[in-house]
């Protein structure tokens, strides 16, 4: 089979049913929490590294791919932070914006120093010096080795399938095809659609691992048009973009549910830290099992 250059490799049903972490006894809801926090961490690190959203999005998808399937990585063996850093590092290598191990280590150490996982986003904005965050030489060397080793494991676990096609450009093309840009609120429409595409990256349903870019772009436009109140053609226009009604419905619900999920996660973790390393996870599982018995 010749994969289309516009298609992504997708997770198989078997990969979605099982994961390395669950096989290692980590509860599914905890795994979801950590994966979500890890995706957010990747997003935050990308912003601090001044990377364009396309590169950040690719890193998040690579991060998400790593954990799925019985042969995927397990949180009992790899911390979300180290996998996030490795995904970011290798993604930037393939981009026009390579980042040095030094910047990666600095930024992740800085983010690690924040008191809680769900820090207000504003506090991230004024940290222009995060990639110069002080790290002792010993820590730096250890983190750098960890970065390289994890990079290898990510590459090998994914069989080197680290290319990601994103729906952003398609989204613009589709809006043009729908003649949406003649509308006075076109900018708002496009902004909303992009926001949905960004949110979908964090989805616990792993929407970028289960659906192709055309469908993601179509669903984002559908939702955005509803919200902004712009009427799109009365015909089933989504079929033109290779998306059937069923898939559209699934994606729309999936995109909308992320918001709820975010709220639940905030409420669940409050001022605490989601365990982002193997040690932190072990400690957290210890306490929770003590608590219940």
């Amino acid at each position: 089979m010749q994969p289309s250059p516009l298609a992504n490799p997708l997770a198989t049903v078997a990969q979605l049913e099982e994961s390395g972490s669950r096989l290692d006894g980590i509860p599914a809801d905890l795994e979801n929490s950590i994966r979500f926090a890890g995706a957010r961490l990747t997003q935050a690190a990308g912003i601090l590294l001044r990377l364009p959203q396309e590169v950040i999005a690719q890193a998040i998808v690579v991060f998400m791919r790593f954990w799925v399937g019985p042969e995927g990585g397990s949180l009992a063996e790899f911390g979300a932070r180290q996998v996030s850093a490795a995904s970011m590092y290798l993604t930037t290598k393939l981009s026009a914006y390579p980042k040095s191990p030094r910047s990666i280590v600095n930024v992740y150490t800085y983010l690690d120093s924040l008191p809680s996982t769900y820090t207000e986003p504003e506090s991230l904005q004024d940290t222009s010096k995060a990639d110069a965050y002080y790290v002792s030489e010993g820590t730096y060397q250890a983190r750098r080795m960890e970065l390289f080793e994890t990079e290898q494991r990510v590459l090998k676990t994914l069989g080197f399938q680290v290319q990601v096609v994103l729906p952003y450009t398609l989204c613009i093309t589709y809006l043009q095809a729908l003649d949406a840009f003649s509308h006075p609120r076109a900018t708002e429409l496009a902004k909303r659609a992009f926001a949905h595409l960004n949110t979908a990256l964090l989805s616990p349903q792993l929407l970028y691992l289960t659906h192709q870019p055309p469908s993601l772009a179509t669903a984002a436009i559908y939702l955005a048009a509803k919200e902004v109140g712009i009427k799109l053609p009365a015909v089933e226009w989504w079929e033109v973009f290779d998306t059937d009604r069923e898939e559209l419905g699934f994606l729309v619900v999936g995109m909308l549910s992320v918001e709820n999920f975010v709220e639940e996660e905030r409420a669940r973790w409050q001022k605490n830290k989601v365990p982002m390393t193997v040690e932190e996870l072990e400690a957290a599982m210890q306490t929770s099992s003590n608590g219940t018995e």
Partner: peptide, 11 residues
């Protein structure tokens, strides 16, 4: 729901 595209597996 799937398009023609591969997946991934460990090396």
């Amino acid at each position: 729901l799937r398009f023609e595209a591969g997946g991934w597996a460990p090396c």
